[in-house]
Design a protein around this nucleic acid. Structure first.
Ligand SMILES: [Mn+2]
Ligand SMILES: [Mn+2]
Ligand SMILES: [Mn+2]
Ligand SMILES: [Mn+2]
Lengths: 223, 223
DNA sequence: ACTAAATATTAGCACTGTCTAACAATAAAG
DNA sequence: CTTTATTGTTAGACAGTGCTAATATTTAGT
């Protein structure tokens, strides 16, 4: 009833709106690498189906139903990523593009089975929350590593957004989820940080990287 | 380059030709539940792409390339079925319709990984051979149980063709691959057979069922 | 406030994959 | 060997998903 193509539009629209509050034809167009007129007519079609709120020249929004559909696809995507990572031994940088396809499989038993075999995981291999079967998604309240201060000790919880390149970079630096990071120093000029973790002392991470690492606070330096 | 839809046509064409030597528009139409004119034009498109040999009013054939494409899809299908069965705990009657979708995933690493995790299996959960990475498929030389005689002792090797209903039926009768079957009696009137296996004595199987069970000969009765 | 740039929309076209209706060819039956 | 049934083909329609070119609207710059 809802095509693979439509599902991909819904997901992008969901990601954009949940990030910036609203989405535009132009942004969707860029994300999906599909020309604006095509996106425009698809938005109208999805509006027709009751999944998108469309008004000429206004920002785009998902209806409640559209939002639910989107999160259920994201659920399948993240469960799949976790399965590929945990049960099949793929790296966290390899799972996304496979999940991008498997998320469209219509077979509830299949995803239920993965969920069971995984022990009902709460997050995917990049630390993003897995929506529940009703499409409800836990809002994590992590902070960006780039917003922390020298002396803070934090736990590395998620990468967001997680490009394949960034994930490879983090793998090279032996940075994995759950690690305790000690912020040794923050360079005021460019925001780069000097971090200690594992047996590594004072590894430097650029601000560009630090912005994408989400952490939870473990201890804060008395100030 | 080749769509999911086209892949499904190729596969059906392969199955029909390898079974009966040749295939017709009509048969493909029935198999896929798609009207003849649609099949007809698809055959022309696939001929255009060099995958099918099409001549008006002549039986349909696959080109070498078409055959290879088909077997590589079948490889993905059967590997998937085996993975679902062996590693995820699905029943042999549950795996087909999921594999029908997953066979279209474009991600060689994914299927390679399944192959590795399974230890490079040679057959799927229904006993059908899994084509190799070049698309070459081992031709099994089993016989139909229905062609065996009273007194024969045979090993149950494959179900073909394997409908979900038949598989459920076999599961109920505790008939699984690898079992040794002793043919006690063949009813001349309707070809039904009385079989002993496991701790079961003289279970009766209709000819309709026996035709679909493939076996390898273990011992033959001295005649 | 006016102009230029960016964004959004409309119109029109192409290709895929499906259908129905009408017609043609082949195969089956008598 | 005709007639009939089955199978195959052609023609034309339509929905889905993409495009380009042209136009309209909104936003940003001066
Ligand atoms: Mn992902
Ligand atoms: Mn996708
Ligand atoms: Mn199958
Ligand atoms: Mn399929």
């Amino acid at each position: 009833m809802i095509s693979q193509t439509e599902e991909n539009y819904l997901k992008v629209l969901y990601n954009l709106t949940s990030l910036k509050g609203e989405a535009s034809v132009n942004e969707i167009s860029k994300q999906l690498d599909i020309k604006m007129p095509t996106v425009n007519s698809m938005m109208k079609r999805l509006a027709e189906k009751g999944l998108v709120v469309y008004e000429s020249y206004k920002p785009l929004k998902l209806t409640a139903e559209g939002k639910k559909r989107a999160t259920l696809i994201i659920r399948k995507h993240r469960l799949t990523e976790m399965y590929l990572f945990e049960k099949m031994g793929f790296g966290w940088d390899e799972v996304h593009h496979i999940a991008e396809q498997i998320e469209h499989i219509q077979a509830p038993e299949f995803f239920l089975k993965m969920d069971e075999l995984l022990g009902f995981p709460k997050v995917d291999p990049h630390g993003s929350p897995i929506p529940d079967t009703d499409g409800k998604i836990a809002t994590d309240s992590y902070l960006k590593l780039s917003d922390c201060k020298a002396g803070d000790i934090v736990t590395f919880m998620a990468v967001q957004p997680s490009s394949e390149e960034l994930l490879k970079f983090l793998t090279n630096r032996k940075l994995s989820l759950g690690l305790e990071l000690k912020i040794k120093q923050v360079e005021p000029f460019d925001g780069s940080m000097s971090i200690s973790y594992r047996n590594k002392e004072n590894e430097t991470l650029s601000n560009k990287v630090c912005e994408k690492l989400l952490v939870s606070e473990t201890r804060r330096k008395n100030s």
